Simulated assay, not measured.
Amino acid sequence: MKRNTDNMEIKRRSTFAILFYINRTKVRKDGTCQLLCKISIDAKWEQIGTKVSVNPAIWNPEKGRADGRSENAITVNQAIDDLTKEIKEHYRRIKNSLGFITAEQVKNAVMGVGQKPLTLLALFREHNEEFK
């Protein structure tokens, strides 16, 4: 029995991962390090620098989170949760609209690169055009 592979649609799953780590090579004057985020999709990756500083003593690289209940640990873990949620939302939105996704597209969406500025007047004009 011969299979007809010409008409079969091949679906491929893309790999998607988010990794948080700190840059221990650049320690600031206050002894903290910058928290960085690495987005990898299909073996291609992009790095995002966050505006969060982490005390290296409380950073747990296995978990990708800060240990403890200190103010710095709570701030860092909240920033990680917020950024993870934002990245996953952008990933889902871009994949549904375009059908494919790259790490650079997700990074640009998170950073706000390439998005048209949304002002109230522009939104009102767009609404009126759609209503016509």
Rank of each mutant, 00 (worst) to 15 (best):
K132G: 13
V54I: 14
K88L: 06
I10R: 10
F124N: 15
E89K: 15
N4E: 06
T15F: 01
D82V: 02
V110R: 08
I94K: 00
A109W: 02
L121P: 03
T119H: 01
C37I: 04
K51Q: 10
I18R: 04
P56K: 07
D30K: 00
T50M: 10
K11D: 07
R125Q: 15
K44T: 03
A66V: 03
L83N: 15
A43K: 08
R28M: 08
E104G: 15
T75H: 00
I22N: 14
V110I: 14
I94H: 00
N108R: 14
A122P: 09
N72M: 03
M1S: 15
R65M: 08
D6Y: 05
P56T: 10
Q105G: 10
E89Q: 15
G49N: 12
K107H: 06
R92Q: 11
I41G: 02
R3M: 13
N128Q: 08
R3Y: 05
F16L: 03
I41Q: 05
Q78F: 10
G31I: 12
P61I: 04
T84V: 06
S97M: 12
P61L: 07
Q105T: 05
I74W: 00
T75E: 00
P117F: 01
P117G: 05
G31Y: 01
F124Q: 10
E129V: 03
K38L: 03
G64C: 04
Q115N: 12
L35V: 11
Q34E: 03
G31C: 11
R125M: 12
I48R: 11
T50I: 04
N7W: 08
N72G: 07
E46M: 10
G112H: 05
G112N: 05
N7G: 15
F20H: 13
L120I: 11
G31V: 13
Y91R: 13
T102S: 15
I39R: 02
K51C: 10
A66E: 04
L36M: 10
A66I: 09
K132Q: 09
E130I: 06
D42I: 06
T75C: 00
T15H: 05
T15S: 10
K116D: 10
F124S: 14
G49A: 13
R125Y: 12
I80F: 03
D81R: 06
K44V: 04
I101Q: 01
V110Q: 09
E62D: 14
K26G: 07
V110A: 03
Q78E: 09
K11S: 10
T50G: 13
K132V: 11
L83A: 11
Y21A: 12
Q105C: 02
D30Y: 00
I87W: 02
E46W: 02
R69K: 12
T102V: 04
N55F: 00
M1E: 14
R93G: 09
H90Y: 01
L98D: 04
L123S: 11
T25G: 08
E130D: 05
T50D: 12
K95I: 14
